[in-house]
Design a protein around this nucleic acid. Structure first.
Length: 113
DNA sequence: AGGGTGACGACTC
DNA sequence: AGAGTCGCCACCC
């Protein structure tokens, strides 16, 4: 069991997300064993700005495949562009198309290692 | 030691 | 179907 804080574990997982792929807060939380702590994952994302190396928080969206970012609208728009830059298509403005297809589940990709 | 906070998720009305 | 509410759990003050 890692002695790192929950946040660091979240960061580590998020950093392993391949470009052009996305995952959900809940999935990360579930992978970390705290399925119900999806909020904590989101909170960790907010703290990701303090983390180093930087965490691609833009690849983490909510369960709906919608890019959130209530923290700062500015970053929100910007992250959308980054996602598109990685080949991810957005529907309305924040809805990811083929979200299910692009979904990167840590509990599946990283499995139980 | 206690309370407030939060980039979610699922349930209920 | 849309909107509101509750719960969850770790971190910070």
């Amino acid at each position: 069991m890692p002695e790192e804080n929950f946040f660091e574990r979240v960061f580590d997982v998020v950093r392993q997300i391949p470009a052009g792929r996305v995952t959900s807060y809940g999935a990360v939380a579930q992978y970390l064993g705290s399925k119900g702590s999806s909020r904590v994952v989101g909170y960790a994302m907010g703290a990701s700005v303090d983390a180093f190396p930087p965490v691609p928080a833009h690849r983490v969206v909510n369960r709906n495949g919608i890019v959130t970012g209530n923290l700062q609208q500015g970053n929100f728009k910007r992250r959308k562009q980054m996602l598109e830059s990685e080949g991810i298509i957005m529907d309305d403005d924040a809805q990811i198309q083929n979200f299910k297809k692009l979904f990167w589940d840590p509990s599946v990709e990283l499995k139980d290692s």
